[in-house]
Design a protein around this nucleic acid. Structure first.
Lengths: 194, 194
DNA sequence: GCAAAAATTGAACACTCGTTCAAGTTAACA
DNA sequence: TGTTAACTTGAACGAGTGTTCAATTTTTGC
């Protein structure tokens, strides 16, 4: 029963990821989950409740992957690999190049308070993950210890956002790789003071 | 008459900018333009036709501002100012921090072919503007002549996307300014080869 | 000042939206 | 095997969607 629920949330994730909150109708959801409206409402309260679970699972999953990066012996090299696998994938999985959270932010006003909260809290959580990676990279001397951790974490998250928007429109994978390289150069480059 | 049309498109721009294509209902549009459905359809064909005009006007407006940056004696300094005015504004204009085109990209599948085309062509057009700025900055020696123009233009556009996503969630204006500074540092820093 | 053309109106259309709930099915336990 | 509880079903609801069009008003040109 619990497994079936996780499975359902996973299927809903694909839908929301592809079509957004607003763009995913209850009838799309019913079809994707192979469930009738009554069951969906009994389980998830409503569309927004399902969306909340989707976001939470998405964040948990992303957090796990970013923590693996941080736990690596060479966090920055792992980060490069993480970016590559997130941004370069076969065409049928192209929708994944967009970050579900960022996509949701663009329609934040149309989502209710429950879903909104889940999205914003997810952003903060992933930001912490980026900060962890930077701290670890300082420990392994991949980055200077003068690197401003909190600011660089915000910056890295931004870069990810920009990269994802780029990757959606891009057909040339080598251009994406070069863009990732640039991010890693700049991460080790100069930071604004105070 | 022509003026009234531009005025209507401007009002529609605010609506689409705030709520997106999908999120802006015809009744919202009717209210915003103070027009009845028949008039709107007579003038703009349909919702998507209006959206197309909105995007085109938005792009034309953005292009103009970016061209002013390129025509400046110090394009990079002007670019900094351009970023600042686009990203730091009073709370009631906060919706403007998001790029209308990028916002539209996230719901591209839900917009028809006409609107989709307008958005994608707009992206290409603005990309050219960014390339112009970089070329001019090389001429004024603000950038090295080894800077890879086309790639740097893509990169700059990405930075703008990331910055705008950052600025929406950010309340601290000085953090945004620092993020802009970082972009300008990196623009003059190392680029990946081939 | 008047007729023809252009623009505007708003009620109504067919369809889709998220959601409900009484009825029916399946599972759990004694 | 009978009883209770948990879950599932799908028709139906009211509100919202983009769009149409005959009737009306305004503008235009002579």
């Amino acid at each position: 029963m619990k497994y079936a629920q996780e499975d359902a949330v996973e299927k809903a994730t694909i839908l929301f990821w592809k079509k957004g909150f607003q763009g995913s109708g209850m009838r799309d959801i019913q079809q994707a989950l192979d469930m009738r409206p009554g069951s969906i409402y009994a389980r998830f309260q409503n569309k927004e409740g399902l969306f909340k679970l989707v976001v939470e699972q998405y964040v948990a999953h992303s957090k796990e992957k970013l923590q693996n990066v941080a736990d690596s012996d060479t966090p920055l090299l792992s980060l490069r690999e993480f970016f590559k696998t997130a941004l370069i994938n076969p065409d049928e999985l192209r929708y994944m190049r967009q970050c579900l959270l960022v996509k949701s932010i663009t329609e934040l006003e149309l989502i209710g308070d429950v879903g909104k909260k889940a999205v914003l809290e997810g952003m903060v959580l992933l930001n912490n993950c980026f900060a962890n990676i930077i701290e670890k990279a300082i420990e392994t001397k991949e980055l200077q210890d003068t690197t401003p951790v909190a600011f660089a974490a915000d910056w890295l998250q931004n870069q990810f956002v920009g990269l994802r928007a780029f990757a959606i429109l891009q057909t040339d994978n080598s251009a994406i790789e070069k863009m990732i390289d640039k991010v890693l150069y700049d991460l080790a480059a100069q930071w604004p003071s105070n």
